[in-house]
Amino acid sequence: MKRIYLPLTKDIIKTLKPGQEVLLNGPVLTGRDAAHKRMIEALRAGKRFPLSIKGETIYYTGPTPARKGQVIGSCGPTTSARMDPFTPVLLKHGLLGMIGKGERSKEVTRAIKKSEAVYFTTIGGAGAYLSEKVESSKVVAYEDLGAEAMLRLVLKDFPAIVAIR
């Protein structure tokens, strides 16, 4: 199975084929509903994002808390379609990759292709298994959102399928 090293570049994305299974390695950000809403509201208010998303990959997940000695708790994907209203704007700001579960809207599918970005799906409901594929985890923004805070994760051989590119 092909190993992909993050951060992504448009050249890497060009080599990917829809339906292809890959193993993701390297840094991603996490973000789900509340973090997306807050990022977009900051943008509308003329403020900056809490961190640059240029070239980033966002993994739609809200992990369970880690026990002592663990890197992270269970951390499977959440339903990506809920992030659809926010995705085109983030793509305009340089977002290159997304990881989640389920289909995206027609509009988002078009926007992903147009921006030469990529959407991966991974295995929903397999959070305990996927926690073995995360090497490190650190809160980087919106800590007050609790389970929805944005994290920096480093993935190791994280299984995914190229869904849209």
Binding site: T61, G62, P63, T64, R67, G73, S74, C75, G76, T78, I123, G124, G125, A126, G127, A128, Y129, S131, E132, P159
Partner: peptide
């Protein structure tokens, strides 16, 4: 393979005391 992973996930969740799914 998907079913294998789902079944394996259930086994390690029990063994490692990790939630089956992060959405508890």
């Amino acid at each position: 393979r998907m079913l294998d992973i789902i079944i394996y996930n259930a086994l390690i969740a029990k063994k490692k005391r990790l939630p089956i799914c992060q959405d508890t």
